[in-house]
């Protein structure tokens, strides 16, 4: 019986383990990509929703809100806002910002056109249809 703890064995385990588990991650990611069409609501990802995502990104909405739970925690979750509030409320809300109530959190007004608002709502409609394994726990997000 030998008794050793060598640097070369430790190094080999590091390299071997890293490659092994990276390949496993790639394998699982490959399977995920195969499974996504059933879950990611891509049939509702139309041109308007794609434009909506672009608006979402270029106004840095993620800097205050979460989307499917990821982002900043300063303002409400919006992944399910379409279900919670409906299209008309969303548009009216965005247009009425900022509220200007002293001491309350303020959302900037981004001066979006009607067409842009429709695109954004279409994006929220798409996100609300993604199969998120029943998250969030309730409609409040």
């Amino acid at each position: 019986m030998s008794s050793a703890f060598t640097k070369s064995a430790a190094r080999n385990i590091f390299y071997g383990g890293a490659v092994f588990f990276f390949l496993l991650l790639v394998g699982l990611s490959f399977d995920t990509m195969q499974t996504l069409p059933k879950r990611d609501n891509r049939e509702n990802l139309n041109e308007s929703a794609i434009r909506g995502k672009h608006i979402w990104e270029t106004r840095n909405c993620i800097g205050c809100h979460t989307l499917l739970g990821e982002g900043a925690y300063f303002a409400p979750e919006l992944g399910n806002v379409y279900t919670r509030r409906g299209p008309d409320f969303i548009k009216a809300w965005i247009q009425s910002q900022p509220t200007g109530v002293p001491g309350r959190r303020q959302m900037p007004n981004f001066n979006l056109t009607d067409a842009q608002l429709d695109d954004l709502v279409e994006f929220f409609k798409y996100t609300a249809g993604i199969d998120t394994a029943k998250w969030p726990p309730n409609i409040e997000g």
Binding site: M1, S2, S3, A4, F5, A9, A10, I13
Partner: peptide, 9 residues
């Protein structure tokens, strides 16, 4: 330390 082989494994 007599686990068979290298402790690292």
């Amino acid at each position: 330390r007599t686990l068979p082989g290298d402790l690292a494994i």
